[in-house]
Amino acid sequence: MNATQPTTVKLLPIYWLESKMEVLKMWRSPGFAISSLLFPVMFYTFFGLLFTMNADNMSTYLLATYGTFGVIGPALMSFGVGVAVERGQGWFDVKEASPMPASAYIIARIAVSLVFSVAVIMCLFTLGATFGDVKLLQSQWLLLCIVLMLGSLPFCAIGLAMGLSLKSNTAPAVVNLTYLPMSFLSGLWVPINMFPETMQNIAHFLPPFHLAQLALKVIDMDIGGNVWLHFGALLAYGLVFFALAMMAYNKKDKS
């Protein structure tokens, strides 16, 4: 009892401190902060507010899908690119050698991802409410925000797996080449039912599709799939990629 208690007491401040520093670091690297905030906001402004094809419903629909787009971005970037770059710089090895627990490293990055998610969501909500005439019940606004934030966790796992497997110089390109086409094919940019049938079928295998459907379910605009199916799919993706990340981490240790 006496041996374990002091460590648990000290763990929280470590998490808090590491998270705070990590957020501050990311905030100060404009390449990350601007791209993860700017892209969803810009796209939503163009496609969800300015060039909507049919009035207010489009703005509401796309708020959920660009919200999805907005939260998976920081998750993939913070982990995928962040980890790979720090590995390349040797900073990852320094951290590993430090007495800080490995969990703090992961939690700090999750914190970064969530902080940016909230920022993106607030920007999008403000835009949609102000210029897109989006009106939702209080419970729907909150639930949408929570679904999107929790829904970003599997993408943290995907990002982590990528960050641990990819080389630092190729990581940004590979992550972006995964992030953008996957978003499009999952119906985050244009509603899924505008796709041809085969493309709609492909979407069912992509994780952002399932998160988008959960988000759309909150506003009653999903295609009518089962909640648990979408949830299960996201959970499965999260677990598989976390396992892959662990494998990549162990392999790195041995080499």
């Binding site: 909230v118 607030m122 409410a129 989006v134 939702l136 019940l137 209080q138 606004w141 909150l142 925000c145």
Partner: peptide
């Protein structure tokens, strides 16, 4: 801030 933000979001009439 977050509470204020979510209270201010518009609801359907």
């Amino acid at each position: 801030l977050l509470t204020a933000f979510f209270t201010l979001l518009p609801e359907p009439e």
